[in-house]
């Protein structure tokens, strides 16, 4: 069977992401497994969960990032969520008592950064509002709960609440032309 070649020879490509994932999946899983086994064997605090979450963060942020919506806002908000979970895990599993202050500061710092990312490239980033809305709503709900439940009220929590509310307003302003349609497309269930 003779084959007439009718396709161009592809140029040699750099290391493919898929291959990198293939190479690193084993070591990552092994590291997580070893941590779990050592932690269970030695006993004590469940530090292995923190290591596993940190490995997951590295995996999802660096080794195998999102295939869809890989833009600066979505990646940054994802990093914020995952960092907050990591901080909460450290507080719950290792040393407690500080997480509310730290997570609040991380949140409002993150919201300021997201706002900067959003406003410096408004035309393009206004199509990536959902992660910002979710972050703002999440931070607002958490901080309002913090204000209601925890006494005395800490300044970090109040600032987070104010900033997340402001960010939400900015997002709604960004969608002002057709807010109903924008929300429908973000939350459609069809």
């Amino acid at each position: 069977m003779k084959v007439k070649i009718t396709y161009a020879t592809p140029s040699k490509r750099k290391l493919q992401r898929a291959r990198l994932i293939q190479y690193l999946a084993g070591p990552f899983l092994l590291a997580a497994l070893i941590c779990g086994v050592v932690n269970l064997t030695v006993g004590g605090k469940a530090w292995s969960l923190i290591v596993m979450w940190a490995l997951y963060m590295v995996w999802t942020m660096i080794v195998s990032p999102d295939v869809i919506e890989y833009n600066r806002i979505s990646q940054f908000t994802k990093l914020l969520w995952e960092s907050c979970v990591l901080l909460i895990l450290i507080d719950v599993l290792l040393v407690s008592g500080w997480v509310l202050n730290v997570v609040s500061i991380v949140c409002f710092g993150g919201i300021i950064a997201v706002c900067a990312l959003f406003l410096t490239d408004y035309e393009r980033q206004r199509h990536n509002l959902l992660p910002v809305i979710l972050l703002s709503v999440g931070a607002l709900v958490a901080s309002v709960l913090g204000i209601i439940i925890i006494r005395p009220v800490r300044w970090q929590v109040s600032v987070t609440a104010a900033l997340s509310f402001a960010m939400l307003v900015v997002c709604l302003y960004g969608m002002r032309h057709d807010i109903k349609s924008e929300l429908r497309k973000m939350f459609h269930v069809r």
């Binding site: 396709y7 161009a8 592809p10 869809i68 919506e69 979505s74 497309k185 939350f187 459609h188 269930v189």
Partner: peptide, 28 residues
């Protein structure tokens, strides 16, 4: 369109841009 993430499902967001043609030089 561009594929976007919604809260429950992905969706296609109409994108106004210059859609370009490329020389066929990669793996099909």
């Amino acid at each position: 369109t561009t594929v976007k993430k919604g809260f429950f499902w992905h969706y296609l967001d109409v994108t106004k841009r210059r859609y370009d043609v490329e020389p066929d030089s990669g793996v099909p």
